[in-house]
């Protein structure tokens, strides 16, 4: 009983020491660059072109937006988008993080590539990419799509993607779009995954299907 305190304090001290030598996973909130959208394009020689849309936190300041733009778009070639995070640091100063990712965009050309699914599986390797993120396919290259796409009102770009996808889905214009369903449908080997299709190009053909509302339920079959 008498020397119990000494004995019980000792391991506790070691414990505290270990605790104090920590901080491995720590990254300050202001030392990260928040990627809002990742774009994947087919690159040269088995590489892919990655486009990042990085949000500018400066824009959220209460004193009103400064002269800086609301977001930055960068495009660069990479092997996959795990290593792309580090490659991007040759352009972006802060540590890239996908914590705020709100959409993944793939160009139509790339999505038709047989290698596409291989790249997509990298998604499961990165714990920062949540499977509840939307997957969108664009007609043109993603880098062009992102630069061309300039929402007038939603300058806070992360809101734009969130709202437009949600409301378009509600209205029935686009199918359910989660990355998660992409995986589960592809893996179960029988289904067809429908992704939202987006473009910034105005269609010139201008052919409207006559009377697109005049169907009865089940008539399409």
């Amino acid at each position: 009983m008498k020397n119990r305190p000494c004995i019980s304090h000792f391991p506790f001290l070691i414990f505290v020491l270990l605790l104090l030598s920590g901080c491995w996973d720590q990254t300050n909130i202001d030392k990260r660059a928040y990627v809002i959208a990742i774009g994947l394009d087919k690159g040269e020689k088995n590489k892919i072109n990655i486009t990042y849309l990085i949000s500018n936190p400066e824009f959220s300041k209460q004193e009103g937006p400064s002269s800086e733009p609301s977001h930055e778009i960068i495009t660069f070639p990479a092997n996959d988008f795990i290593s792309a995070k580090n490659t991007a640091n040759s352009i972006v100063a802060k540590e890239i993080t996908y914590n705020m990712l709100s959409v993944m965009i793939v160009s139509e050309e790339f999505s038709k590539d047989p290698e596409f699914i291989r790249y997509m599986y990298d998604v499961t390797k990165d714990r920062e990419i949540k499977h509840n993120n939307p997957l969108v396919v664009t007609k043109e290259d993603v880098s062009t799509f992102l630069t061309e796409n300039k929402p007038k009102l939603e300058t806070r770009i992360h809101k734009y993607f969130e709202f437009i996808l949600e409301n378009a889905n509600k209205a029935g214009l686009i199918p359910s779009f989660k990355l998660h369903s992409y995986f589960s449908i592809t893996e179960s080997d029988a289904g067809l995954f429908l992704a939202p299709y987006a473009t910034t190009q105005r269609t010139t053909s201008g052919k409207y299907t006559a009377g697109e509302d005049e169907f009865l339920a089940g008539e399409l079959d």
Partner: peptide, 9 residues
């Protein structure tokens, strides 16, 4: 959750 922390710790 803690990708960079050594597993020993």
């Amino acid at each position: 959750y803690f990708v960079r922390t050594p597993i020993l710790i």
